[in-house]
Design a protein around this nucleic acid. Sequence first.
DNA 1: AATGAAACCTGACAGC
DNA 2: TGCTGTCAGGTTTCAT
Length: 281
Amino acid sequence: MPELPEVETIARGLASRVSGDVIESVWLGQKPEPLKSTALEIAAALEHSRIATVRRVGKHIVFDLEPKGRGRVRSRQSHVPPTASAQWIVHLGMTGRLQVCEPQTEILKHTHAILKLASGRELRFVDPRRFGRLSIARGFEAAGIEPLEAEFDPFFALFRSRKTPIKSALLNQKLLRGVGNIYADESLFRAGIRPRRSASTITREQLARLLSSIKVVLNEAIALGGSSISDYVDADGEEGFFQLQHRVYGREGEPCLVCKTLVKRIVIGGRSSHYCAKCQK
DNA sequence: AATGAAACCTGACAGC
DNA sequence: TGCTGTCAGGTTTCAT
């Protein structure tokens, strides 16, 4: 479901609502066994921790935790050697949602985690398709370049010698983190590049245009709260509006907004890809 | 090293 | 009403 703008919107919403709150207790369902952390490890790290900050890294939501009641002063005096503070990492997969709500709010089907907060509210993780992942990390570092902060030279270097289609390269989170299917198609349209073009054949000038298109598209989408296609809503349950700005994604067979040529849909690396054959070369 | 298909899951929707 | 097939914003794994 969520790409960079949706995850950014959710992270900002969560930051304003739960920063500083303390996790009093944790319930975890049977199923969301994530990649590395066991349910026990997650519960142990979360319970009695304070949520210092919430931020986005690529498509991950990072909750920076600090142990409750153990401020800097006390840990300095402690005999326990200082360890990096823990982080709760949430990846929403395709259908994951994080909601902050009152305890009496009806528990949705496919709710896999409930955190009771000292403020009296609950933070819940709901994910019908169960592609989402929860884990605990220390010193979390994601692979790839953050697109909104990317300088041109490192961006250029990512594609220079890759023969893979540029669309596939953009979706590769080890290269660039946060761009997904919608924003790859939209960025390529605005840059005038066909999704199947081999990355290595794209000129320096075109890649410069691509990077700026990516930034413009992502920033516009963030400003509009992301794209709500089927069921995406942010942490406050609000829909985004960037879907109204899509120029090619989901517009197969409709006229290009620039030249009226019918928008094509092809499959690249198993993903639907939309483009205008006249505007994109 | 690098494509690509399949797998992981559930739900929505179209067509019959 | 209900069955079948297709599709979905993501990522990993296995085969070629």
